[in-house]
Amino acid sequence: MEILSSRTILRPADYPTTLAFYAQTLELAVAREYPGGTVFFAGQGLIEVAAHGGSGVSTRFDGALWFQVRDLTATQTELVLKGVQIIREARQEPWGLHEMWIADPDGVPIVLVQIPADHPIRRDGRPAP
């Protein structure tokens, strides 16, 4: 199987509220709009908020959206000032990442992550030439 692109599709119970959350509160840039939906850029991925295809009740979401941010402390301050409830305050995890948890209006968990400069994700593990 060859996958050419991908995106996460959310079908919220309250489309206008969820659309405003991703567009205005999180300030994600719009990749594409169409009648009944908006696709947002989310780093290297895409998130589609769709008003169609749902039942008017949010679909259970057993995963989480993972967004890397440059400065987690500044992000937390910005979101608190916008009235976003912080589900779990920013802290360093045992695996070395700094994480904070919020949720969208339908309760979809969103993990905001800052990767420290010395974390293995940032280090080049290849041998020096």
Results as ranks from 00 to 15, higher is better:
F40D: 12
D118T: 15
D124T: 01
T75P: 01
A42C: 14
F41G: 00
A23Y: 06
E78K: 12
D104Y: 09
W101Y: 09
G125S: 10
G56F: 07
I102V: 09
F40K: 13
Q114I: 00
G56A: 07
G83L: 04
T38G: 07
G96C: 02
E93A: 08
R88V: 04
I115T: 15
P94K: 10
I121R: 09
F21Y: 09
I47H: 14
A50H: 03
S6G: 14
R126W: 13
P105F: 05
T73R: 05
G53F: 08
D118F: 11
P105D: 05
R123L: 13
G43I: 02
P12M: 04
T8R: 04
L28F: 13
P105L: 03
A23N: 05
P120N: 13
D14L: 04
T77H: 15
D14V: 06
E48L: 09
S58R: 15
G45Y: 14
V111F: 02
L4I: 10
S5M: 01
I87P: 00
V111W: 00
P116C: 02
E2H: 12
I9W: 08
R60L: 13
Y34D: 02
Y22A: 10
Q68D: 05
L10N: 08
L72S: 10
I9A: 01
S58P: 09
P105V: 07
T73F: 06
I87L: 10
I86N: 06
Y22F: 12
D71K: 03
A90T: 02
P109C: 06
F21P: 04
Q85C: 03
L81N: 09
I121T: 06
I47D: 08
R70F: 00
Q24D: 13
T75G: 01
R91A: 14
R7W: 05
E89Q: 14
S58T: 14
A23F: 04
D14E: 01
W95S: 03
E93K: 08
S5C: 03
T38R: 10
Q92W: 00
K82M: 08
T73C: 02
I3F: 14
A42Q: 10
R91C: 07
Y22W: 00
A74N: 02
A117S: 11
P35C: 07
T17M: 14
Q76H: 08
V57M: 12
V84G: 11
G54Q: 03
S55W: 08
A23I: 05
Y15D: 00
W101R: 09
V30M: 05
P94Q: 02
T77V: 06
A50N: 15
V69T: 02
A50G: 01
R70C: 01
V57S: 14
S6Y: 11
I110L: 10
R60H: 15
P109F: 08
R70G: 03
V69K: 05
T25V: 14
W95Y: 15
A90C: 00
V80I: 13
S55I: 08
G45I: 05
P127E: 13
F67S: 02
E33M: 06
G56P: 00
T59Q: 15
Y15E: 00
H52P: 00
W95Q: 10
A42H: 10
T59E: 15
D14N: 11
E33L: 00
R32C: 02
T38P: 01
R91S: 14
